[in-house]
Nucleic acid binder design. Structure first.
Length: 400
RNA sequence: GGGGAGAUUCCAGAGCGGUCAAAUGGGGCAGACUGUAAAUCUGUUGGCUUAUGCCUUCGAUGGUUCAAAUCCAUCUCUCCCCA
């Protein structure tokens, strides 16, 4: 693989990157002409990768395409500890079985973005299972409390009197040690990873290595337009989402996020994105661009055919107010031929309790065959099939 | 090791013997409006065969009382100050 010229590489590398520590070191590393070892760590704390994760994954892919060596660290060990970054409370300690379960699905999802060929996948349990306590102490001796408190999350928690354990403070050290073990030249991460990445630089230096360069991508804002995209806040778009859901979720983002999403989640040319920005500012309906964005994202992560489908689905559902019941087919799966609304909704996992169901009905959010149901005591009969139902805005389907 | 403060429903945070399923705000959900945007407004937000009824909930366990989130004891956890 022949590497591109340095300035051409830099142009690609720097797209969507908000900070480099340091650019000068990066250039020097590129000048060596050798493929660089580019590290990205992901902790399998949940089963699903969402678009927030893909920002850095995309960047890693770009390095692969440039001929560098991608090293994906699966933090099966660090996942148990949990990254305390940005957290105001201790994360529940994940058990090994859960983590292992997450690992396999993570890998499958990561391959949607990464090139399998030029990729090393390593688990940090490989070294953390073996590390001696002596070595751990040695690592700890490199850091002072004051250094740790430079970490904003730690300082904040400390100052506000919120519990902060030593275990959590070990996290940056562990992540840094990963870089030492795999001899990373570059580490990718969101800006929130700065402290952890810099800890890696620090440790590498202590171990007599040239420090890695930190390359930071912005944090993708979630669907609520306020917080970072995360599973726990339920403001995410999953990489395994159904095409129509992915499309729909993109359509539901606040307008202010459109440009950010274009920049971080699509391969659309930077100049083109600037044009879009200008047009929106000139009063063009942002919805049109949002549709384009949604189409692009679905195409990229799922496929063109699915994107077409999702687009049509959206058009029908929301623009023409025709609810596509037929896309969600159900068969009569109840124990009896007659069920109450509460049982119906509980079985479909739309509500969790009878009270919940009652509320939904009382508030006018339940429809059968497009007729609002006011009577909570109404019985749904198998003989009514086929019929359509709708509960709130997001849940609907047809029984046939 | 010593002293002090605290643990409340999804979150923050009131309540400090009955009127407490527990104020208020945030979040969630539903409705109106709309571009499944934002903003706004309204309702709702423990559970139960809807009942001015019952059950479970205010860190845990025991106790006092006709009655406890509220008082007492012990325990667990957290924060602060001093060593």
């Amino acid at each position: 693989m022949i590497l591109l010229k340095i300035d051409e590489q830099l142009k690609i590398i720097k797209r969507g990157v908000v900070d480099i520590v340091t650019e000068e070191e990066l250039i020097n590393k590129l000048k060596s002409g050798k493929p660089l070892r580019v590290k990205l760590g992901i902790d399998p704390t949940a089963t699903e990768i969402h678009l927030g994760h893909t920002v850095a994954l995309n960047k890693l892919r770009q390095f692969q395409d440039l001929g560098h060596k991608a090293i994906l660290i699966i933090g099966d060990w660090t996942a148990m500890v949990g990254d305390p970054t940005g957290r105001m409370e201790e994360r529940p300690y994940l058990d090994k079985a859960t983590v292992l379960k997450n690992v396999s699905s993570y890998k499958q999802q990561a391959f949607k973005i990464l090139d399998k060929n030029n990729l090393d996948i390593v688990y940090n349990s490989e070294w953390f299972n073996k590390i001696s306590f002596e070595e751990v102490l040695k690592l700890c001796s490199k850091f002072t409390l004051a250094q740790m408190l430079e970490h904003e999350s730690f300082e904040k928690r400390y100052k506000e009197g919120i519990p902060l354990t030593l275990l959590e403070m070990m996290y940056p050290i562990m992540q840094g040690y990963d870089s030492v073990v795999i001899r990373a030249d570059i580490e990718l991460g969101g800006t929130d990873q700065k402290f952890n990445v810099i800890a890696g630089r620090f440790l590498q230096r202590e171990y007599g290595m040239e420090p890695q360069v930190g390359l930071f991508t912005p944090i993708l804002t979630g669907l609520d337009g306020k917080n970072k995209m995360s599973k726990s806040l339920k403001n995410y778009i999953g990489i395994n989402d159904k095409p129509e859901d992915m499309y729909g979720k993109v359509m539901s983002i606040p307008d202010e996020l459109i440009i950010q999403y274009f920049e971080l989640l699509t391969d659309i040319d930077v100049e083109k994105i600037k044009d879009i920005k200008r047009e929106i500012n000139n009063g063009q309906n942002p919805m049109e661009f949002k549709k384009m964005l949604a189409y692009n994202i679905v195409t990229k992560y799922i496929g063109k055919k699915e994107a077409e489908f999702a687009k049509e689905h959206f058009q029908k559902t929301f623009s023409e107010k025709e609810i596509p019941y037929h896309n969600y087919k159900y068969s009569w799966d109840f124990e009896t031929d007659e069920v109450t609304i509460a049982d119906f909704l509980k079985k479909l996992k739309i509500v969790e309790s009878n009270s919940d169901a009652r509320r939904l009905v009382e508030q006018g959010g339940f429809y059968i065959n497009d007729n609002r149901v006011d009577d909570f005591k109404r019985i749904i009969k198998k003989s009514e099939m086929p019929f359509t139902f709708r509960a709130g805005k997001k849940n609907f389907g047809i029984f046939e």
